[in-house]
Amino acid sequence: MIPSATHHRTAAAGDLTALDRHGDDDVAPGMVDFAVNVRGRTPGWMLDALAVRLPDLAGYPLRDDHDAAVDAIAQAHERDRREVLPLAGAAEGFALLARLRPRTAVVIAPTFTEPERVLTSAGVHVTRVVCPEPWDVAAADVPDDADMVIVGNPTNPTSVLHTREAIESLRRPGRVVVVDEAFADVTLAVRSGVEIDEPESLVGIAHPDVIVIRSITKTFALAGLRAGYLCATADLIGDLTAGRPHWPVGTLQLTALRAALSDRGRAHARAQARIVRADREAMCAALTDAGIDVCGTPAASFVLVRTIDGTARKNHLARAGHAVRSCANFAGLGPDHLRLAVREPHVVAGLIAAWRGDDDAEHHLDTPGTDIDDGN
């Protein structure tokens, strides 16, 4: 079983369409977790690195720790250290975008809802540009006057991996392109028989108008720590950090960043990418064999499926002890789409058994829209 969270937010628990509702709202203690895209358990060596620093928490974060994290990120992605900014989670990176004062920000949907939520809260005019299935960003009709465009690669929740060229085609004079690469470290391609890690990532390319936001919390199972980083030009980072509070990233976060971007951490991410690929292929085959509609060509650590009466399906699975993520709050999708985190074959078999149980009792399905209180 994939361990479930022992605590989660409840503010949006009753509203599947709220922008601030995320997968953790769907998981109660003891459930098999397909709703949150965190990979298993935190590696032991990462916990050891963090434990060593616990006695240092009486003091403020050190400049040496900040510099060590920056150096590790810069070296991993072959960027100038002035082009690296540690973050208190990728979500902080989205919140900082408002400091660029865009006139019109476009989010290419379906996509992670947090950028839209925080920019709108900051008074930025946000426009959704919805791509039709199979959600190719090349089909996005982005207005020419948009001075900020935000795109996920791979995109949450569709699991689509866009080509680097397609992302770069969004660039225009006077526009900043923001790429959410929270799951890029588990993407993989095979070209001419050679495996390529992070094949479409822009994190190592110093475009003057591109911001790449990354997370370490998914692949290293550190969601409770809130740690990430972004790469952009020094000028953009200067604008993003103007007025940022002192000590925005704590000692343990900086320690985790340094460890995750070390040679050992990079090797762990590469190993996870291969596990994800194998488990995803097996999962998609099993779902398809069970008559479950897998959407698109998934490339990340989650897959998107389509089902009739998705909210009722979600509720039945919850009662059977399986948490899945409703896509009711993703523009361009809806409650009949569910996102499933990639899990091991025996865990997927349990989900399919519960799903087939729903099929056997189809006439008992709840009315769509009546969501159980997953938090209690």
Rank of each mutant, 00 (worst) to 15 (best):
R103S: 15
T120C: 06
V70E: 02
D64Q: 13
Q75C: 13
H162G: 00
G93I: 05
D64A: 15
D185Q: 09
M148I: 10
E181P: 02
V137H: 02
G93S: 02
L97N: 05
R101V: 04
R103Q: 12
V118Y: 03
R172K: 13
R81K: 13
A98I: 10
A140F: 01
N153T: 10
E165H: 03
V129M: 07
D141L: 11
L161H: 01
P115Q: 08
F94K: 04
V84C: 05
A58L: 13
R99Y: 05
D64R: 10
D65H: 06
A91R: 12
V84E: 07
P143K: 07
E168M: 07
T155R: 11
D185Y: 08
N156Y: 15
G89D: 14
R63E: 15
D80Q: 05
V130F: 09
A166S: 02
A105G: 08
N153V: 07
P110K: 14
H66F: 15
D147P: 01
D144I: 05
L57A: 09
L161P: 06
S121C: 12
F183D: 14
A182L: 08
A184N: 10
D144K: 00
A139Q: 13
R79T: 06
V130Y: 11
F183S: 13
S159V: 07
V151H: 00
V151K: 00
T155C: 11
P86W: 02
F94D: 04
A182I: 14
V176Q: 07
D145E: 05
R117W: 04
R171K: 12
G123M: 06
G152R: 02
Q75F: 09
A98M: 09
D180Y: 02
P61Q: 12
A138I: 07
D147E: 01
E83Q: 13
A122M: 07
M148R: 14
R171L: 12
H77K: 06
Q75P: 04
Y60R: 15
A140E: 05
V137L: 03
R172S: 11
R164T: 03
A109F: 04
A105I: 11
R82C: 12
V124F: 13
R101F: 03
R175W: 08
V177W: 11
T104K: 03
D65M: 08
E116I: 14
T104W: 02
P86M: 01
N156Q: 13
P115Y: 07
V137G: 03
L62K: 09
T127S: 12
L57N: 06
S169M: 02
